Amino acid sequence: MKTQEELTEIVRDHFSDMGEAATLYVQVYESSLESLVGGVIFEDGRHYTFVYENEDLVYE
């Protein structure tokens, strides 16, 4: 099982292909040891929320 830090790095790496991230945040109260819930805000103003669970990243 991966730590939240490892899950955060996986998510950060995925979003790095989409541009320069200004902020990546984790909603600790919705996350667990198995999943990471949060969002990313890019330098150009785009904002996505995400759920990373079971090696699957879903974002909108």
Rank of each mutant, 00 (worst) to 15 (best):
A22Q: 09
I10L: 09
E20P: 11
N54I: 08
R46H: 03
D17E: 12
V40P: 01
V37Q: 07
T23G: 03
F15L: 04
A21W: 13
D44I: 12
S16R: 14
T49V: 10
F50Q: 00
F15Q: 02
S32N: 08
E34Y: 09
E20Y: 13
H47L: 07
S32M: 08
G38L: 12
Y29P: 02
A22T: 09
E6Y: 08
R12Y: 06
G19K: 04
T49N: 04
E9G: 07
T49W: 11
V51E: 01
Y25V: 06
H14L: 15
T23L: 13
E55A: 11
E60I: 13
T49S: 06
S31D: 05
I41C: 12
Y29V: 03
E30C: 15
S35D: 02
S35A: 08
Y29Q: 03
F50N: 00
M18L: 09
E6F: 07
F42Y: 05
E60S: 10
R12Q: 05
S32C: 12
L24Q: 01
M18K: 06
T3Y: 05
E34H: 09
A22F: 15
S31Y: 12
D56P: 02
R46Y: 02
T8D: 04
V40N: 00
H47S: 06
A21Y: 13
S16H: 08
T3W: 07
T3D: 03
R46K: 04
Q27I: 15
V11W: 06
E6V: 06
V11K: 01
Y25C: 12
Y25W: 07
L36W: 07
Y59E: 03
F42Q: 00
Y25P: 01
D44F: 13
Q27H: 11
L36Y: 06
S16E: 05
Y52C: 13
E53N: 08
V40A: 03
V58P: 02
V40D: 01
D56E: 14
V40F: 04
E43S: 13
G45R: 01
Y52I: 06
E20M: 13
D13E: 13
M1S: 09
Y29C: 12
E20T: 13
Y59H: 05
V28R: 07
D17F: 14
H14R: 12
I41M: 06
I10V: 05
A22M: 14
E6L: 07
G19I: 07
V11R: 03
T49Y: 10
V26S: 00
D17Q: 15
V51F: 07
N54E: 04
R46S: 06
L24W: 10
F50D: 00
